[in-house]
Simulated assay, not measured.
Amino acid sequence: MKRFSAFVLALLLTVATSTFAKPDHSKLRDYVQFVHVEVDLVAPPALINFQPDAKPKANFYGSAVVIAPGYAVSAWHIFAAAEEIPEGVRTKIAQLMSRDGKTKRVPLTVVAKDIEHDLVLVKGEFTCPCAPLAVREAELDELVYAVGFPQFAQHGVQLLTEGTYQGLSVLNTYLVTTHMAPGASGGGGFQKEDGELRLIGIVDAIGVANLGPPQFGIRQEVHWTTFLTPVKYVHALIKGTPAENLVR
């Protein structure tokens, strides 16, 4: 009888553990890479006369989610300023942090962009593991993991945080309670679907609150609210591109 009771107890513990255990998120860090878009600007003649070695640069930092071999999705605003610089007056280099922690400079090509939803598909030296895309809407109150590189230039660390999905914002973005900060834009939000953690959205922004009248311009970042561009717009972005047949 004691053996039977012990067996039943062990069985119940196993069922409870499998039912309430968190999904395995060990792969999520491999899906998201750091992106440093570095633009070498051609110095104006006046500047060259005074500083012959001057090479003005513009730097943009963010994250990107690898969705297929050679392709990643990110936030358009990371690349927008660089793309809007007229051709012929700049050399653009995208600097990626590889998975072994070493940094390398490789060229990136913008394949498709969705300015309205702040998305961009880029081609580069991206290798799998690749993030699987969700096919359904996010589930309310369900666990969400967010992965990105907030303030990577200062801290050099990738962050993985967790929260829950709280609904669709007035901007038609998913509002989740994960903790993020500037630099996480372009990272990914993941939720369990069919037993697997899948990409439900791309990190677009974090919450901001006005402290006092708006005209004072005093604002406070709300790091526990993160806005994700829903994955349905990623599906639309890659449609008709070579990446469409490579994602899973």
Rank of each mutant, 00 (worst) to 15 (best):
T127I: 05
Q95K: 14
K92H: 00
E87V: 06
P86W: 10
K113F: 00
F149Y: 14
I78W: 09
V135K: 15
T103A: 13
D114M: 01
G148E: 05
T173A: 03
L197D: 11
V110T: 10
A146C: 12
Q191G: 13
L171D: 15
A94T: 13
I202K: 11
C130W: 06
L159K: 11
L121C: 07
V157P: 06
Y174P: 02
M180F: 00
V110E: 10
L171W: 14
K92I: 12
L143K: 10
R105F: 12
L143G: 10
F149D: 01
S74H: 12
A153D: 15
Y174A: 03
A184T: 03
Q158C: 06
D114E: 07
H155Y: 15
P107V: 08
G201R: 02
V110K: 08
G189P: 01
A205N: 12
M180V: 04
P86R: 03
V120E: 07
L108S: 01
E116K: 12
S98W: 08
P132I: 07
R99P: 00
L168A: 00
Q191S: 13
G186Q: 05
V157G: 07
E139N: 09
E125K: 13
A112V: 02
V203T: 12
I85S: 07
C130F: 09
E137H: 14
A146I: 02
H155P: 08
R136E: 12
L199D: 05
Q158F: 09
V203K: 06
V106K: 13
A81S: 11
Y174T: 00
E84D: 13
L197I: 04
L171K: 13
V144D: 03
D100P: 03
G88C: 04
V111G: 02
T91R: 15
M180P: 06
K123Q: 14
E193P: 05
V111N: 02
Y174W: 06
E162A: 02
C128P: 10
T103N: 12
A205W: 04
F79D: 01
L159C: 06
V170I: 03
P150W: 02
L159R: 14
E125D: 15
V176M: 06
V120G: 07
K192W: 01
A184I: 00
V135M: 14
A184Q: 03
K123W: 02
A75Q: 09
A72E: 00
H179W: 08
L171Q: 15
V170W: 04
L168T: 08
A75G: 12
L121G: 04
Q191M: 14
K92R: 15
T177Q: 11
G148V: 07
A112H: 07
D114C: 04
D204F: 02
D141C: 11
Q151F: 07
G88T: 05
M97A: 11
G101S: 11
G101N: 13
R105C: 09
G163P: 01
V176I: 13
E193D: 11
A75F: 05
L119P: 01
A81H: 07
I206V: 12
E87D: 15
A153T: 11
L96K: 01
A138C: 06
K123L: 00
E137Y: 12
D114L: 09
G189K: 00
I115R: 15
E139L: 06
E116W: 12
A80T: 04
Q95G: 08
D141N: 15
V106G: 07
E125R: 11
G195M: 02
V110Y: 07
L108C: 04
E125Q: 13
S74L: 09
E125W: 08
G163L: 00
A205H: 11
P132L: 09
D141E: 15
A72V: 00
